[in-house]
């Protein structure tokens, strides 16, 4: 079980002391061309979470590789890859495939703050699979109408794992003007309200595929992390909590160890999949067809 940050929630160069407490660092999403991002305001707190509308601000692939990547070489590095066509994603994967600093690639297939890619998640994964031998993680939206189906499709296309979940699209209005509080109008909703959504997504995707999963969505404590692992996550990522508590990585790691010990276990991985009635069968004994049937039986 590794503890990561959620992409876009931490800058390793601005906060090396926070990054040092994680097992691996996930970059902000890199797109082929530079993006200045969305207009301000970009942040709006709501009663049970927050909205962000950053819009994938980043220096672009070439500047990232030339200027940023060398400064991240000391980290176990996951690079989040974005684009608007399968070819764009694949081109970036090909460039990063040649870079020894990069350990894993996360495909951001679900940013709620930009227009969606025209190609399907599976088409993008297949194109990237052909472009790199590095592990590929598909980051999916919890708002997909049939998440298990998409999870199976990206698995078949060659993804090694899933990252669940991205933010949900949300809107907040100014109570006086009744106009959107964010410059772009809508934003990505994260924070406390996301926990049951994340648990359900991880539960369904793990049930459908048995794939390795980075679970994220309101991990505020060690017990939040343990629940995601029980639902099927193999790794856990911290997002919004890093904004309110830069000490969260060390704190949550300690709490997770204590929660694990309280269960009489030595490793949180021992609860992996426990939320499922018969967790081992998902990974090892079911063939693909019966996995699909099993996933259907797990859907509420």
């Amino acid at each position: 079980m590794s503890l990561l940050n959620a992409s876009g929630c931490l800058d390793a160069l601005a906060a090396p002391e926070v990054t040092a407490e994680l097992d691996a660092y996930v970059t902000k999403t890199v797109t082929p061309l530079p993006r200045e991002g969305n207009d301000a305001p970009r942040i709006a707190e709501t009663d049970s979470g927050m909205l962000n509308s950053i819009g994938l601000q980043n220096p672009g692939r070439d500047a990232f590789v030339a200027d940023v990547l060398p400064r991240l070489a000391h980290l176990r590095l996951w690079v989040s890859v974005g684009g608007f066509t399968a070819a764009e994603y694949a081109d970036t994967c090909a460039v990063l495939d040649a870079r020894a600093e990069v350990e894993q690639l996360e495909l951001n297939l679900s940013c709620p703050n930009v227009d969606e890619a025209a190609d399907s998640a599976a088409e993008i994964v297949a194109a990237c699979r052909a472009a790199t031998s590095k592990p590929l993680w598909a980051k999916l939206s919890p708002a997909l109408p049939d998440l298990p189906e998409v999870a199976r499709a990206v698995q078949a296309a060659g993804a090694d794992g899933l990252s669940l979940v991205n933010t949900l699209r949300g809107l907040a209005l100014d109570e006086r003007t009744l106009r959107p509080r964010l410059g772009r109008g809508v934003g990505g909703y994260s924070g406390p309200a996301l926990k049951p959504v994340a648990l359900a997504a991880v539960f369904a995707a793990y049930g459908a595929t048995g794939m390795p999963i980075v679970g994220m969505g309101r991990v505020w404590s060690g017990s939040d992390a343990l629940e995601l692992i029980a639902a099927g996550a193999t790794h856990v990522a911290l997002g919004t909590v890093l904004f309110s508590d830069p000490g969260a990585p060390a704190r949550i790691r300690a709490e997770l160890a204590a929660e694990t010990a309280a269960l009489g276990l030595s490793d949180p991985a021992e609860v992996h999949g426990r939320a499922h009635a018969d967790p081992l069968s998902i990974r090892t004994t079911l063939d693909r067809t019966s996995r699909v049937e099993r996933a259907k039986s797990l859907e509420i």
Partner: peptide, 9 residues
């Protein structure tokens, strides 16, 4: 959101 460079807000 964060005050230390993480959120780009």
């Amino acid at each position: 959101a964060c005050g230390y460079g993480g959120c780009y807000g």
